[in-house]
Design a protein around this nucleic acid. Structure first.
Length: 572
RNA sequence: GCCCUCGUAGCUCAGCGGAUAGAGCACCGGCCUCCGAAGCCGGUGGCGCAGGUUCGAUUCCUGCCGGGGGCACCA
C-alpha cells in the first residue's frame, strides 16, 4: 500500500510533467493544511511565468478526485486537504491491517547488520549500548519489512591478549576460572591477567608463547580459548536478555571466524597487483587518504611480524557478506571513530572487485553517550560504566517511581513492569536523538513518565488499552464510515495514516529517531483527542468511531515501539 | 596541518531547499463531583559568526569560531 504522500505525489505528477517533464511536486506534510506541494515555484521559475498562474494551471489539470481538495496559497504553494471519504476508508483499512499500512518489500533482500561487538573476557560497558540498541532496532525494522536479516555480532575473540588470558585461566584452574567468568566478573579477570602480564616477566613470556600456540591451532590451547569465548558469550547473552535484545549466541560471529580467510585476502590482493610492501608490512594504498605529513595512508593487511591487521579481518568479512551471505545491504552499527577505517577498507574492497556497486554498504555511526559533565560517560572513579549496572539502576529507578505512585502490583509483577519501563526509558532515550549527535545520559529525565520519554509512550498505550478493559465483552465494530468531524479526531486520524511515512523515513535514513518523533507526536494527538472526545460515555456511531480511533492508535503505538525494541505493556 | 562530525529557546531535543523555526523539561496562568491529571489548554523564550548559490537557506557550498573524534602495523 503506497503512503498518502506517495498517492498525492503520483496524482500531482502528470500535471507537473505537462509543464516541465520530470519536475517534482515536492509533497510534504503541512501545518497549513494536511499536506502541501512546494514544487510550483521551481516550475514557474524555469518557465519564466508567474508562480500563481502556474499553480492555477496545475490545479486545473491535477486529478485529485476522491483524494484531496487543493487551493493555492502564498507565492504558489498548493495546500492539500484530504477528503473525508479518503480519510474514512483509509482508517477503516487500518483496522483490519496488522501492518498498519506499511508495505512489505516487493523484492526482499539480505540485510547484514553488524552490531554490539563486545570483547571476550571484557565487561560490556556503556560504550556498547548504542550499537546494541540501534542495531537491534534496525534488525526488527528490516525483519518487519520482509527482508532477511543476518545479525553479525563481531565480538573481539582473537588477538594477542588471549595469550595472557589463557595463562591466567590456567593459573586459576579451569573450574574456578569458569565460575569467576560465569558470575559475570569479567573485568577483574581481565585486569588480573593484565597486571600479571605487566609485572611478571615469566608470565608475560608464557603468554607470548601461548599466543603462538593459539595461532598455530594447537588443540589444547584452542580448547582453553573456546572456554573463554563460550563463557563470555553466555554472559553477553544475559546482558542481551536483560536489555531485551534479539541477539543470540549463533549471531556471535567474531574476528576468529575469518581467520581461515585471511591468507586468501592477502594472496588475492597480491595477485590483483594491489599489494605493496611498506616498512616491512604488506599494505594497500587506497586513493585519497593521507597521514599527518601528507603522505599516502595505507591499509595494513599484514603486519611486519606477519600477523594480520584488523583491516584484513574486515576485508574478509566484506567478502563473506557479499559472496556467501549475498547481502544486499551491509550495515555497520559501529562508533564514529571507525569512519576512516571503514572508508579505507571499503575502498580497497572496491579496488579488488569484492564490493559490487549493487551492494549497499553503510557505516551507521553514532555519537557518544555523555555523563552529566558532558564528557564521555564514566563513573565517579573514572571507570567505564558496566552495561548491567546501568540497566539495574534504571530498573531500580523505575521501581521507585512505581512505588511512589502507589502501585498495587505484587512485588514480582511490579519488578517485571519496572524492568519493562527501564528498558523503554533507556532505549527510547538512546534512539530518539539523531544518531550522529552525542547525548547526555540522564536517568531521571529518561525514566520520567511525563514528556518525550519511553515510559510516557508506554503509558499512553496502556491508557488506551484500559478503555477496552472497561468495555469488557461489549461487541463493537468500526462504522462503515467515519465522520471525523471533531478537529482533534481528524488530526488523530491524519496522524495514524502517516505511520507508513514515518517507517519510510526510519528506513531510508536508518534513523530510529524519525519513528520516535512520529510516535511522540501521535501520542500527543491522541491525548488531545481523548481530552475532547469522551469515548465510553458516547454512543452509537460516534462511540464506534472513537473506539476505532483508540484501537488503531493503540496498535500503532504498540507496533511502532516494538520496532524500536520497546515493549508496550497492557497495564502500568 | 589534513579529514570526519556536532553547534537551534535557560536545559534536553525535532526541523526531509519553502509560508509566522516546532516539541519536551523548567517557569507563569487556567482546567479534575467527568473514560488513568503519568494529562489537557494558553504564555514567556532561539537558528555560533561571516560570505556565497537560489525566486526562497536552520537546511546546500566556502571560510572562521567552539565541542568531540580520526590520521601506519592494539583491534
Amino acid at each position: 500500500m503506497p503512503t498518502t504522500r506517495d498517492l498525492l505525489h503520483a496524482r500531482l505528477q502528470p500535471a507537473f510533467d505537462r509543464l516541465v517533464a520530470g519536475s517534482d511536486p515536492v509533497v510534504r506534510p503541512s501545518d497549513k493544511a494536511d499536506y502541501q506541494s512546494n514544487g510550483v515555484m521551481a516550475v514557474a521559475k524555469s518557465l519564466g511565468r508567474p508562480p500563481r498562474e502556474v499553480a492555477e494551471e496545475i490545479v486545473a489539470h491535477a486529478d485529485l478526485a476522491g483524494l484531496a481538495s487543493v487551493d493555492v496559497a502564498g507565492p504558489g504553494f498548493l495546500n492539500l486537504t484530504l477528503s473525508d471519504e479518503f480519510l474514512s476508508s483509509r482508517l477503516r483499512d487500518l483496522t483490519t491491517d496488522d501492518r498498519l499500512g506499511v508495505a512489505r518489500r516487493d523484492e526482499p533482500g539480505v540485510v547484514v547488520i553488524d552490531y554490539s561487538a563486545p570483547n571476550v573476557a571484557k565487561e560490556m560497558h556503556v560504550g556498547h549500548l548504542r550499537s546494541t540498541v540501534i542495531g537491534d532496532s534496525l534488525s526488527r525494522l528490516f525483519t518487519f519489512l520482509g527482508d532477511d536479516v543476518v545479525a553479525r555480532n563481531h565480538i573481539g575473540d582473537w588477538g594477542t591478549p588471549f595469550g595472557m588470558l589463557i595463562e591466567h585461566l590456567l593459573d586459576l584452574g579451569e573450574d574456578s576460572a569458569i565460575s569467576e567468568l560465569a558470575i559475570g566478573d569479567l573485568n577483574s579477570f581481565y585486569k588480573a591477567a593484565r597486571v600479571k602480564f605487566d609485572e611478571d616477566e615469566t608470565f608475560a613470556e608464557r603468554s607470548r608463547q601461548r599466543v603462538v600456540l593459539l595461532q598455530g591451532g594447537e588443540s589444547e590451547t584452542r580448547r582453553l580459548w573456546r572456554i573463554l569465548v563460550d563463557q563470555s558469550v553466555a554472559y553477553f547473552q544475559e546482558v542481551y536478555a536483560k536489555l531485551d535484545v534479539l541477539l543470540t549466541p549463533a549471531d556471535a560471529v567474531g574476528e576468529s571466524y575469518y581467520n581461515d580467510m585471511l591468507a586468501d585476502v592477502v594472496a588475492d590482493l597480491d595477485a590483483a597487483g594491489l599489494l605493496t610492501e611498506s616498512d616491512g608490512a604488506k599494505v594497500v594504498f587506497p586513493e585519497g587518504f593521507v597521514n599527518r605529513e601528507g603522505e599516502p595512508l595505507p591499509v595494513i593487511v599484514q603486519k611486519k611480524d606477519d600477523g594480520f591487521g584488523y583491516a584484513a579481518t574486515d576485508l574478509a568479512a566484506v567478502r563473506d557478506r557479499v559472496v556467501n551471505l549475498r547481502g544486499r545491504d551491509l550495515l555497520y552499527v559501529v562508533g564514529a571513530p571507525q569512519a576512516q577505517h571503514f572508508q579505507m577498507v571499503w575502498s580497497v574492497a572496491r579496488m579488488a572487485g569484492w564490493l559490487p556497486d549493487n551492494v549497499h554498504i553503510e557505516h551507521v555511526s553514532f555519537g557518544n553517550v555523555l555523563g552529566p559533565d558532558r564528557k564521555i560517560f564514566k563513573t565517579r572513579s573514572g571507570d567505564t560504566v558496566k552495561l548491567v549496572s546501568l540497566i539495574d539502576e534504571a530498573i531500580a529507578a523505575a521501581d521507585t517511581a512505581l512505588r511512589a505512585r502507589g502501585s498495587q502490583l505484587a512485588e514480582d509483577e511490579r519488578l517485571v513492569l519496572a524492568t519493562q519501563i527501564a528498558r523503554a526509558a533507556v532505549k527510547y532515550a538512546d534512539l530518539s536523538t539523531e544518531r550522529q549527535r552525542d547525548y547526555v545520559f540522564d536517568l531521571e529525565r529518561m525514566i520520567a513518565f511525563e514528556g518525550d520519554t519511553g515510559p510516557y509512550l508506554a503509558y499512553a498505550h496502556a491508557r488506551i488499552r484500559s478503555i477496552f478493559r472497561r468495555l469488557g465483552n461489549e461487541p463493537w465494530s468500526a462504522p462503515a464510515r467515519l465522520a471525523l468531524t471533531e478537529p482533534s479526531a481528524r488530526q488523530l486520524a491524519l496522524g495514524l495514516l502517516r505511520f507508513p511515512e514515518a517507517i519510510d523515513e526510519f528506513t531510508l535514513g536508518l534513523a530510529p529517531h524519525k519513528l520516535c518523533v512520529y510516535l511522540f507526536d501521535l501520542a500527543q494527538r491522541f491525548t488531545s483527542f481523548y481530552e475532547n472526545c469522551p469515548v465510553l460515555s458516547s454512543d452509537g456511531e460516534v462511540r464506534a468511531e472513537r473506539l476505532t480511533l483508540c484501537a488503531v492508535t493503540a496498535s500503532t503505538l504498540s507496533l511502532g515501539l516494538s520496532l524500536l525494541g520497546i515493549e508496550a505493556p497492557e497495564q502500568m
